[in-house]
Lab assay of single mutants.
Amino acid sequence: MPSETPQAEVGPTGCPHRSGPHSAKGSLEKGSPEDKEAKEPLWIRPDAPSRCTWQLGRPASESPHHHTAPAKSPKILPDILKKIGDTPMVRINKIGKKFGLKCELLAKCEFFNAGGSVKDRISLRMIEDAERDGTLKPGDTIIEPTSGNTGIGLALAAAVRGYRCIIVMPEKMSSEKVDVLRALGAEIVRTPTNARFDSPESHVGVAWRLKNEIPNSHILDQYRNASNPLAHYDTTADEILQQCDGKLDMLVASVGTGGTITGIARKLKEKCPGCRIIGVDPEGSILAEPEELNQTEQTTYEVEGIGYDFIPTVLDRTVVDKWFKSNDEEAFTFARMLIAQEGLLCGGSAGSTVAVAVKAAQELQEGQRCVVILPDSVRNYMTKFLSDRWMLQKGFLKEEDLTEKKPWWWHLRVQELGLSAPLTVLPTITCGHTIEILREKGFDQAPVVDEAGVILGMVTLGNMLSSLLAGKVQPSDQVGKVIYKQFKQIRLTDTLGRLSHILEMDHFALVV
């Protein structure tokens, strides 16, 4: 994948999101292997301009796509893939009243899908469409860049269908997702969380590099694949309309690839034109409109599966009536509230959605109805927002919020430890010299600072030695090549209790 991002070429006709291997024109390309080798690009942008032909009021008969309808489940399912879809609609009884809503608040519980998330729908649909058009064949390999849930859905379907599955996901995604993927037989590649989507090191860039190296491999490409919004247009939206008897006044959905909100909203605009569509985008993402909503100094966020630093091709923002931004604290607070007060075992993005819903639905009156999409299960986040310690460490809970008995030293300040200034190293000294210094002084790690004293990161003896043994660096290389740029900081005025929580999850903390 090139470091400079080429513009994806656009073909003359058809839909841009065809499933299957992508040609340089962004659509299915038939021909000899030699032709494909000559024409197939190194990668295709996940934010390529959409060429979708959908228009409100256009006859369904003019759609270029294969459409399906929700099917009634048999008493005995032939395999677990038949437990994807037909998820329950559940009334939220307490939270709406707590925040003064007059309307009825309903939750579409997508964590009841077989793999635990709304992404099971698009995973199965992308595979079925690729099999139907002859792209996927027995023994082929599926590769997908994902925040985890699409990966789980694909790995689940691949396990049943017999495909090899490789999932490329950023490091910030939970260990629970990784464990589930491994249990399903998927191979996992992790990428830096802070890598831009168009960087060769991003999950998108690495996935395309693997595709170019592995024979008979395919990126189904949830960011561009029409099967993504079509899955929701054909099934999720129809289920909502049936469950609500066609009567709903507002739908609120958090947005990642945009397939969920695009597919549902398009069908609702056709069948229930008075329904307002509300999009939820986390602070630090750029999906919301108008652009002024996205202006923030924050560039990272903890909530998973929603928000991006690019506009995915499948996201149709014209069908969203209003956007709201959400933050991590309210997302996790509301997710825990949904679990504790409503018994809905949902993930953090569901918290984002409901946090926005109780604001947006203030305009609705008694007798009206708001539906929220709860995308995934708490299963993926047992060591994250479900953990009091994690919430404390991230600053989303305060010590006084917890009532468990603490040891005698818990409320003492870090400054009472009488710490001395640490050994520091410059980023320009060599790895070999740094190892000598650390061994001589008896230290395992040291902060790396520039000549102005600005902290650049941390270097550890173990990481340097393993990097040297693996051949990633040489003793003569500058130590700046092996620094940890993500590390926890703590102030002298913070409590030892807070430091204790940090050290339970990290090997060190830097006192500043």
Results as ranks from 00 to 15, higher is better:
S3D: 04
T5P: 10
T5S: 13
V10M: 15
V10A: 09
G11R: 10
T13H: 08
T13S: 04
G14N: 10
C15F: 12
H17Q: 10
S19L: 05
G20W: 09
H22L: 10
K25F: 08
L28M: 13
E29R: 12
E29V: 12
K30D: 13
K30S: 06
S32A: 12
S32Y: 11
E34S: 06
D35E: 15
K36E: 12
K36M: 12
L42H: 08
L42F: 11
L42Q: 11
R45H: 11
A48H: 09
S50W: 01
R51H: 07
C52M: 00
L56C: 11
G57E: 13
P59Q: 10
P59F: 03
S61A: 13
S63A: 11
H65E: 04
H65R: 02
H66K: 05
H66N: 08
T68N: 14
P70F: 06
P70A: 10
P74E: 10
P74F: 08
K75Y: 07
I76F: 06
I76G: 08
L77S: 04
P78A: 12
P78N: 08
I80C: 09
L81H: 06
K83W: 08
K83E: 10
I84V: 14
G85V: 13
D86L: 03
T87Q: 00
R91Y: 13
I92W: 00
N93P: 09
N93W: 01
I95K: 00
I95D: 00
K98Y: 07
E104K: 14
C109T: 06
F112N: 01
N113V: 02
A114I: 06
A114C: 04
G116D: 13
R121P: 04
I122R: 02
R125Y: 08
D129G: 03
D129V: 09
A130H: 01
A130T: 07
E131M: 03
R132W: 04
G134E: 06
T135L: 14
K137F: 10
P138C: 14
P138Y: 15
D140M: 08
T141D: 09
I143C: 02
E144G: 01
T146F: 01
S147I: 00
G148E: 06
N149D: 05
I152D: 01
I152G: 00
A155S: 13
A155V: 02
L156V: 07
A157W: 07
R161K: 14
R161A: 08
G162Q: 07
G162S: 06
G162N: 00
Y163H: 02
C165F: 04
I166T: 12
I167R: 08
P170F: 03
P170N: 01
K172S: 04
S175D: 10
V180H: 04
R182Q: 08
A183D: 04
G185P: 00
G185Q: 00
A186P: 01
E187Y: 08
V189S: 06
R190N: 07
T191R: 02
T191Q: 01
P192I: 06
R196F: 08
D198L: 08
P200S: 08
P200I: 08
E201F: 08
S202M: 01
G205N: 10
V206Y: 04
L210T: 07
I214M: 09
H218S: 03
H218M: 09
L220N: 00
D221K: 02
D221H: 07
Y223R: 01
Y223W: 01
N225W: 00
S227P: 09
P229R: 01
P229W: 01
A231K: 07
A231E: 04
Y233W: 15
D234K: 05
T236N: 14
E239G: 00
I240F: 07
C244L: 04
D245F: 07
D245N: 12
K247C: 13
M250F: 05
L251Q: 03
L251N: 00
L251V: 14
V252M: 13
V252N: 09
S254N: 11
G256R: 00
I261E: 01
G263R: 00
I264N: 12
A265D: 02
R266D: 02
L268C: 02
E270G: 06
C272D: 11
P273W: 12
G274C: 03
